[in-house]
Nucleic acid binder design. Structure first.
Lengths: 231, 231
DNA sequence: ACATCTCTGGAACGCCGTTCCATCCTGGGG
DNA sequence: CCCCAGGATGGAACGGCGTTCCAGAGATGT
């Protein structure tokens, strides 16, 4: 059983998923592949390239345009990234840390094209597409940071409960708002909230075309949905 | 001249600004402060705490609410973060990597409060405030990633020119959109584009209140402006 | 059979964050 | 005035990291 780039990337993904970003080490990788660290460098030039390849493997196809209105396609694209990051938090870190990543280019292309189809004037269209991209990347980064700060195996609701408790314990003088929304934080749904943000940006785009914006919907759209188009 | 937490944080900021995130090392810090690495640990418990303290030092006051309409205040808050990250790119990395950061809490509070003042209904208000925060953080992270990938000293326009050339050299089949907007990328203004994104989100929020949204403005608002409230 | 070339894996290098500890300095009690 | 406890210092050392180096194993073509 020889080494190969695919085997290496696969093992790297397993390591990243189970042990987090700090778990990916050339030594750990070599141990898992029953080889030496040096051998890996024959197939992969360095750790950054390995991380990019792993991100690529997860995100391939997550940004594929589908039939439907541009709005629905944009929601589907954004959800694809969200679900991939949800399942593999390290992808969020990667997306927000390295530019010149093929996956990022494809994502920009998909979003930009749909925004064009939306009928946003060209000049504002670039800004609008960039804004949506940055929102998606922001959520991805925050989710990754959150996942990285908790030990793997923690229940999601538990984390939110802890955080909500912290918000409620803040100084009432300085943080009245955060205290007031702590209950909403406790039982919100990350995915729904993400979608609400996408709809918010889409509603903003609608005003750019002079269209009387119907208020963005809160319910999740009829999109492939069911968490996780990735891998 | 004894050590002190302030002297250490100050030297850390200098190191981060001049040599980037990889330039902050306890050894380099010790050399600059003419002491040993061990002495630093008497005043600072570890590197994460040092990074948080440095971020705090830069961002203090950048999220301070001002008089004016909630929209203008939100623009001012967002610009404060943008300018701080523009001047100290490592702040962007920090903001998107570590949760439980005091600066992040303050930013959330400031944004959330203004969104409440905007009259967005409470349920949607939390989502809307989170969306704006995530957009700001997304831009911050991208700016940091971009700054980290280029050697310090490079001219900004030069970087954009190089990136635009890369976009123009992409496969016409796969990336028609990116190729078409490459000229806009070349001579856009990051700050203006950031503001356009903020306005886009604000326009979306306006639809949540059922207000007939006037199209978001493109020109920069009358905000302290002049790059950099930070430090 | 041999020479060649791909591929392997373990040792070694330099750097990192962090810990340990001998030592220095200073100020308050005898 | 001495002394000494404890805060503060700084250099050495530890374990781990990414990466490089290189001796050699295995296949391949002649």
């Amino acid at each position: 059983m020889g080494l190969s780039r695919e085997r290496i990337v696969g093992a790297a993904i397993e390591l990243l998923d189970t042990d987090g970003e700090r778990g990916l080490t050339f030594r750990a990788l070599a141990a898992r592949l029953k080889t030496g660290a040096g051998a890996i460098y024959w197939h992969v030039t360095n750790k950054d390239e390995l991380l990019i390849a792993a991100t690529e493997a997860i995100l391939t196809g997550a940004a594929r345009p589908r039939a439907g209105t541009p709005e629905d396609t944009l929601r589907a694209i954004a959800l694809g990234v969200f679900d991939a990051v949800d399942e593999h938090p390290w992808v969020g870190t990667q997306l927000t840390r390295m530019q010149a990543q093929p996956a990022l280019l494809r994502l920009s292309e998909s979003i930009g094209r749909q925004v064009q189809l939306l009928g946003v004037p060209s000049a504002a269209g670039f800004d609008a597409a960039t804004a949506l991209l940055n929102y998606v990347l922001g959520v991805a980064g925050q989710n990754a940071a959150l996942a990285g700060s908790i030990e793997p195996g923690t229940i999601r609701g538990e984390v939110l409960g802890t955080m909500a408790a912290e918000w409620e314990a803040l100084d009432p003088e300085e943080f009245p708002y955060l205290r007031s929304v702590a209950p909403q934080l406790r039982d919100h749904d990350d995915r729904d909230q993400f979608l609400a943000g996408v709809d918010l940006v889409l509603a903003g785009m609608a005003t750019l075309r002079g269209v009387p914006a119907d208020p963005p919907r809160r319910a999740r759209p009829d999109v492939p949905s069911g968490h996780g188009p990735s891998q």
